[in-house]
Amino acid sequence: MAKAIALGIALFAFWLTLSGHYTLFLLSMGVASCGLCVYITTRMGLIDAETVPTQLRFALLTYWFWLIIEIIKSNKDMARIILSRKIELAHQFVLIPTSQQTDMGRVIFANSITLTPGTVTIETAEHALLVHAVTPAFVPSLEEMGRRVTAVEGAQA
């Protein structure tokens, strides 16, 4: 129930952002359409920890801040590789062990790995991710990233 209300509020905030016209008629139409969406989603049984991730901790914001700095660093390294006169690559497929308990945590970790240029998640499994790195220099920071994701993923739903 709490998740349904949270979904309704999020949908209405999205509607308000895209609309831009705030007359009584249009607002009531927006409320009605959001209510219909929540009703249909509930009937389809789609409201769970995956569609409405309210279990994520507030610390996710500080994690994003750390991730942005990490993205800037690896972008700089990647730009240096591209602009160097003779491109030197050492391709590798590396298995990165994951310590996350939930699917959501693993998704955040895999997406963060792909967000930092220089590393791409190729395949996922229960306790490890297969990662392609363009040189070995990009791999060491992934360990700390995994620890930080485990800290913010929240309780098992």
């Binding site: 972008n75 990647m78 491109i87 690559l89 791409v120 392609h132 363009v134």
Partner: peptide, 24 residues
């Protein structure tokens, strides 16, 4: 990033150049 998409020698390196366009 677009230059890397042209310059880098194979697909597995180019995917990181595309990542640069998508992120920063």
């Amino acid at each position: 990033g677009a230059l890397g998409l042209i310059r880098l020698p194979d697909f597995w390196a180019r995917i990181h150049a595309a990542g640069m366009i998508d992120t920063l």
